[in-house]
C-alpha cells in the first residue's frame, strides 16, 4: 500500500475516533452546558483501562494492573464503563452546588492531578512509559500485518462510530435531550418546571464519559500504545474546539469539527517535517492556530460553523388546524398586540 493511502486511513480513523469523543463532549457541554475541562482525563481512563485489559500479564519490566487479555470489544466497553464510574465519583462530589466556573476549576485541577498521579504511580498504568504493545484487535485471528491492520481497524471504528451516532441521536432527539438543553439554558427555570436538573446533568455526564472512554479505547487499540504525552490537558481544548467549530448541540456538525480541528491541526502537522533547529515549532504553531480559530469562530459564528438545528414542531399552520378541528378563531395576530 502506498504511504499516502496508509496516511489517509490513519486520518480517517482519527476522524471517527474524534467524532465519538466530540459527541460525548457535545452531550455534556453542547446539550448539558457542563464545562468539562477534564474531558481528556476521561478519555485517558478509557484508553488505559481498555489497554490494560487487552494486554496479557505484564512482562519484560512493564507494570500495569489487570492484564486479562480480554478480546475486542469487551475491553473497549469496560474502558468506557471505567470512565463512567470515574464520572460518577466526580459528579456526586461537585455537581450539586457548584457554579459553572467553580466546576470548571475543579475539573481542570482534577485532570492535572490525574495526569500527575498516573505519571508518578508506575504500578497502575506503567507511569510515564505508559502501556505499549497493546494487541491489535483481530490482527492474529485474521493474519493482518501493519499495512492491512490500519484500513481494517479504520473500518471497525467506522462501524463503532455509526452505532454510537445512532445511540446518541436517539438521546438528543428524545424528551430527555430536550429537558437537558432546557437545563443548559436556565437551570433554575427548568427546576421550577419540576425537573431534577442534577439527575439530567449526571446522566449526560455519565453517557458523555462513556463516549470519552470508548474513544480513548479505540485510540489505544489503534495505536498500540498510550502514555501521558498523549493526553496533555491542552487536548481537552482541542475537543472543545472541534465541538464549537462543528456546532454546539449538533451531532452532524461534529463530523466537520472532527475533520477540521484534530485532524487538520494536530494529526496532519505530525507529518510535516520539523524546521531544523526548532523541534516542535510546527506543533506549537498548530496549537496556537487552533486557539485563534476557536476565538474567531466564537466571535463571528457563536453557533458554530453548522448551527444547532431547530427541532421543528411540524404542527400545521393555524388555518389548517382550524379546518381540521372546526374551532372558531378569536386569534389576534401577535404582531398587532405586542
Amino acid at each position: 500500500m502506498s504511504p499516502l493511502v496508509y496516511y489517509l486511513f490513519t486520518l480517517a480513523f482519527f476522524v471517527f475516533a474524534y467524532c465519538i469523543l466530540g459527541w460525548g463532549l457535545n452531550l455534556q457541554f453542547g446539550h448539558g452546558g457542563i464545562l468539562n475541562f477534564a474531558y481528556i482525563g476521561f478519555v485517558a481512563i478509557g484508553a488505559y483501562v481498555t489497554g490494560a485489559l487487552s494486554l496479557g500479564k505484564p512482562s519484560g519490566g512493564q507494570s500495569y494492573i489487570f492484564g486479562f487479555s480480554l478480546p475486542f470489544p469487551v475491553g473497549l466497553i469496560l474502558g468506557g464503563l471505567a470512565a463512567c464510574v470515574f464520572a460518577l465519583l466526580v459528579s456526586v462530589l461537585t455537581f450539586r452546588r457548584l457554579r459553572t466556573d467553580y466546576l470548571a476549576m475543579v475539573l481542570i485541577s482534577l485532570s492535572l492531578v490525574l495526569y500527575d498521579f498516573i505519571n508518578n504511580f508506575v504500578p497502575l498504568f506503567g507511569g510515564a512509559d505508559g502501556l505499549t504493545n497493546v494487541p491489535e484487535p483481530f490482527a492474529d485471528a485474521l493474519g493482518l500485518d501493519t499495512n492491512t491492520f490500519v484500513p481494517f481497524f479504520a473500518g471497525v471504528s467506522l462501524l463503532v462510530a455509526l452505532l454510537m451516532w445512532w445511540v446518541m441521536s436517539r438521546i438528543t432527539n428524545s424528551p430527555f435531550g430536550r429537558t437537558l438543553r432546557a437545563s443548559r439554558d436556565d437551570d433554575e427555570a427548568t427546576a421550577a418546571l419540576g425537573k431534577n436538573v442534577f439527575k439530567f446533568r449526571l446522566i449526560s455526564m455519565l453517557i458523555g464519559s462513556f463516549y470519552a472512554g470508548v474513544g480513548g479505547g479505540l485510540i489505544v487499540e489503534f495505536a498500540g500504545a498510550f502514555n501521558t504525552s498523549a493526553w496533555l490537558p491542552g487536548e481537552t481544548f482541542l475537543i472543545f474546539a472541534a465541538v464549537i467549530v462543528g456546532g454546539v448541540g449538533n451531532n452532524k456538525g461534529m463530523i466537520l469539527g472532527a475533520l477540521i480541528v484534530p485532524v487538520l491541526f494536530t494529526q496532519l502537522p505530525k507529518f510535516i517535517p520539523d524546521i531544523p533547529g526548532h523541534p516542535g515549532l510546527i506543533l506549537n504553531i498548530a496549537a496556537m492556530a487552533i486557539g485563534v480559530l476557536l476565538m474567531l469562530v466564537l466571535w463571528f459564528r457563536p453557533q458554530g460553523v453548522i448551527p444547532e438545528k431547530k427541532r421543528l414542531s411540524k404542527l400545521p399552520p393555524l388555518s389548517e388546524r382550524h379546518r381540521s378541528t372546526g374551532a372558531i378563531s378569536a386569534q389576534l395576530t401577535t404582531e398587532e398586540t405586542l
Binding site: F237, F240, A241, I285, A287, I290, G291, V292, M295
Partner: peptide, 9 residues
C-alpha cells in the same frame, strides 16, 4: 482556556 493554549505554545 483557549488563550492559555495560545500563550503556552
Amino acid at each position: 482556556f483557549g488563550l492559555s493554549l495560545v500563550l503556552l505554545n
